[in-house]
Simulated scan of single mutants.
Amino acid sequence: MRTDDFRGGMILQRADAYQLVECWSDTVGYTRAPRQVRQDPDEDYRFLLPLTGETVLRQGDEESRLTPRAAGLMTCSAPFELLPAQTNRVAALPTRDCSVHAV
């Protein structure tokens, strides 16, 4: 693959306390290393919802395969790898509040 063949994009929507990020790209992995966790702490969680394709989330000793019918919750205060198996679209909702509220 030539470097000018890469395709990707992002849509960001924000409110006061939340943001919704939809991103898509050709196959590319995202890593947050221990050094990055120390240098740039992030106590928010990310609720990941694959819209197309499959994404592998590795954090600690755990590995989860997320598909459009399976969402995941991850912390950014620990190292992780996020590896799409193919071109996909993922929506992520950063939040500090992970409590469940009955409606």
Rank of each mutant, 00 (worst) to 15 (best):
L12F: 11
D16R: 14
Q19E: 15
L20H: 06
L20K: 00
L20R: 05
L20Y: 04
V21R: 11
V21L: 13
C23P: 00
W24F: 15
W24I: 01
D26L: 05
V28C: 11
V28F: 12
G29F: 10
Y30I: 12
Y30P: 00
R32V: 09
R32N: 09
A33G: 02
A33R: 15
A33I: 10
P34W: 08
Q36H: 07
R38A: 13
D40L: 12
D40Y: 14
D40S: 11
D42F: 04
D42L: 10
E43F: 14
E43P: 07
D44I: 01
D44W: 11
D44K: 08
Y45P: 02
Y45F: 15
R46A: 10
F47A: 06
L48S: 04
L49Q: 11
P50H: 02
L51Y: 11
G53L: 05
G53C: 06
G53F: 06
E54L: 02
T55F: 09
T55S: 02
Q59W: 01
G60Y: 08
E62M: 15
E62Q: 15
E63P: 02
R65K: 09
R65C: 15
L66H: 04
T67M: 04
R69A: 13
A70P: 00
A71K: 00
A71Y: 12
G72I: 05
G72D: 03
L73S: 01
L73D: 04
L73C: 09
L73K: 05
M74Y: 00
T75Q: 11
T75F: 04
C76T: 10
C76I: 05
S77R: 14
S77L: 09
A78V: 12
P79V: 05
F80D: 02
F80N: 01
F80L: 13
F80I: 02
E81M: 13
E81Y: 07
L82V: 09
L82N: 00
L83K: 04
L83S: 06
P84Q: 04
A85E: 14
T87Q: 11
N88I: 07
N88G: 08
N88T: 05
R89V: 14
V90I: 12
